[in-house]
Design a protein around this nucleic acid. Structure first.
Length: 627
DNA sequence: GTTAGGG
DNA sequence: CCCTAAC
């Protein structure tokens, strides 16, 4: 946090002209027309730095880090000065949220590049491991609020960090519009604050929990670790005093913060890294939201400084975590809003957008698209439209958050499969099928010993496809065996029945397979989804149906099913209804021509004329005397 | 959970 | 038969 807007500005001057390639300056610096430049490189697989291609540069330039990273690219920024480093780190913060490996390298510190990259990964890791609850964010928010008040109270002429953040933010807004005029005006403010911010930091250091002067490695470390454990804003702030710590202490702190050693000796880097870690640990989800939800925010983060990131992001976090509370969020920001109305406005805008609940369709799409990152923190379903506006910025957190709730792992015969909760896994029937399948599978291995059947043992993953084959095999095997399958295992009914139906009294077959589920199983072959289960209606069934209709009336399908189809459990009321519908159709279709329409087109069932007549009869009766 | 209808 | 909207 010791880094303020001013820092960037100041440093810029120092490194003026050091730019190697003047490309893609970020918004904050670009408008300024400052010579600050970035060298865009890409970290190839073997760790080498490859100069970015024009295309890549363009990409980064036009979109932003997030998008670039979204494109699954590993991008390394070679910063040419401190200011850039600052910005880049912030960026990294963003990019890392997208689960990308991004390395930002200060030009001067080539030797430490790898370290940087490496740590960035460490950062990612630590981030991914920390789940934060909404509650937590609320707490944080409150703390921030307190901070703000404090700052406003005893630092009238010394703007507290939060307001500063706002300034930054409003600046950002302007930049986006590329409004030079506004820019000029706004520029003053950040700069003027720069030194103040620094002072502020110092003040904090002495005032706050962590007297900097006192800052010995051990106390700091404990405090930090504590902070990491249960993030406390005040402590995070105390962080600022890292300035006074010796490198060694910083390294210690780094370790405490990230849980890993570091050999980096760059004090500045360490400080930032640590601060970053803490900050990030607090707004991981936020960044996600922010970015995905609103591009503006993402940019803001880039240009913003530590302090800004902390205060601002926290606000965002809370907002993000609280779907409906446009008001509450703004409330929190009110203290600062007084300073800049523009900020207030923009924030409200954002808040409003976030409130909108994702459509079901959207969620589905997300869950299908976003394969990875399903273990992200529970986020909020706030984003949506934004994503619709910028599809490229695949919603990260939302989807992820959503996904957490919407995904589930289904274990099928030993193997676990990730299934989006909305995935259209057949309802009711399908599950039974699977069960049947599993049963079959086990029985296959255990009970069945016949050679022909033994080779049916399938691996769960193959099950589906295998089943198809097996079906075919079964069909070609001996009848007796078929029977067995038909009864104990109910997958292959389609084939079996088609065969059996011809030469057996359907009724028998039905009763045999009955009570349990006789469903076929979902068979997928070559991507085509065959009809799950098909069981031709037998004459007796039709008769039963007709009788049932005559007894209970058409429409009382459940009744009919209950009474007339007690032995045919596989016929659902819907089935009955459908069949009746078909019968009706058939009966009326056949009647006009002749009374001998006993045979229907293909090989489908022979429906005796009498039955059809009866159907028509009933139909007319029913229509006359509606239920 | 049922029904009614469209696919 | 499947899938859904309405009940």
């Amino acid at each position: 946090m010791g880094t303020a807007v001013g820092t960037v500005e100041d440093c810029r001057e120092m490194f003026e002209g050091s730019a190697q390639t003047s490309v893609t300056p970020f918004s904050p610096t670009n408008p300024i027309g400052n010579p600050v430049a970035y060298k865009l490189v890409r970290v190839s697989g073997d760790g080498r730095l490859v100069p970015a291609t024009d295309e890549e540069i363009l990409e980064v330039n036009e979109t932003d880090m997030l998008i670039a990273s979204d494109a699954c690219q590993t991008v390394g920024y070679l910063a040419t000065d401190e200011g850039n480093l600052e910005v880049n780190e912030t960026d990294m913060h963003i990019a890392s949220d997208a689960c990308q490996t991004v390395g930002y390298l200060p030009a001067e510190g080539i030797p430490s590049r790898l370290s940087h990259v490496e740590s960035s990964e460490g950062l990612l890791q630590s981030d991914n491991v920390r789940p934060y609850t909404d509650q937590y964010y609320e707490e944080m928010l409150q703390k921030v609020e307190q901070e703000e008040r404090l700052g406003n109270v005893h630092g009238s002429q010394v703007p507290s960090t939060p307001p500063d953040a706002n300034i930054q933010f409003s600046n950002e807004e302007k930049f986006i519009k590329e409004d030079q005029t506004h820019y000029e005006a706004l520029l003053q403010e950040p700069i003027s604050f720069a030194s103040n911010v620094q002072n502020e930091c110092n003040l904090n250091q002495s005032d706050m929990i962590e007297p900097c002067s006192n800052a010995a490695a051990s106390p700091k470390e404990t405090a930090l670790s504590e902070a990491a454990q249960k993030p406390d804003f005040s402590r995070v702030r105390g962080e600022i005093c890292l300035d006074d710590l010796p490198i060694k202490a910083l390294q210690e702190t780094f370790r405490a913060t990230f849980g890993r050693e570091t050999t980096v000796k760059d004090k500045t880097w360490l400080k930032r890294r640590i601060a970053m870690g803490l900050v990030k640990s607090c707004d991981v989800p936020a960044t996600n939201l922010t970015i995905k939800d609103n591009k503006l925010i993402g940019k803001q983060e880039k240009s913003s400084v530590m302090t800004n990131v902390v205060s601002k992001d926290m606000g965002d976090d809370v907002r993000a975590t609280k779907p409906k509370e446009a008001p509450s969020s703004t409330d929190h920001l009110n203290a600062t809003d007084h300073y800049y109305a523009s900020e207030d406005y923009s924030s409200e805008q954002r808040a409003a957008k976030r409130v909108r609940k994702p459509t079901r369709r959207y969620i589905e799409e997300l869950s299908e698209t976003d394969e990875k990152r399903q273990n992200d923190k529970p986020m909020i379903p706030s984003k949506d439209q934004r994503s619709s506006e910028k599809p490229e910025v695949r919603s990260i957190s939302v989807s992820s958050g959503k996904r957490v709730a919407v995904t589930r792992t289904v274990s099928l015969a030993g193997s676990e499969i990730e299934v989006p909760y909305v995935s259209h896994v057949r309802r009711s029937r399908p599950r039974e099928n699977i069960m049947a399948l599993m049963d079959y599978h086990s029985s296959c291995l255990e009970d069945r010993a016949s050679p022909a059947e033994s080779n049916f043992s399938l691996t769960p993953s193959q099950l589906n496809n295998e089943v198809v084959k097996r079906d075919l095999v079964v069909e070609s095997t001996s009848r007796p065996v078929q029977r067995e399958f038909a009864t104990s295992d109910k997958n292959n009914e389609e084939h079996i029945l088609s065969v059996v139906d011809q030469d057996m009294e359907p009724e028998h077959i039905d009763s045999s397979g009955n009570s349990s589920d006789d469903m076929g199983l979902p068979i997928t072959q070559g991507g085509a989804l065959r009809r799950k289960h098909h069981r031709a209606w037998t004459l007796s069934e039709v008769t039963n149906l007709v009788e049932g209709v005559s007894k209970y009336g058409a429409g009382k399908w459940s009744e009919i099913k209950k009474h007339s189809f007690s032995s045919h459990s596989y016929r659902t009321s819907v089935d009955l209804k459908d069949k009746w519908r078909n019968l009706l159709k058939a009966s009326f279709a056949q009647s006009p021509s002749n009374s001998m329409g006993s045979l229907k087109k293909h090989g489908s069932m022979h429906i005796p004329v009498q039955i059809l007549s009866r159907v028509r009869e009933l139909a007319e009766k029913q229509s006359l005397v509606p239920r």
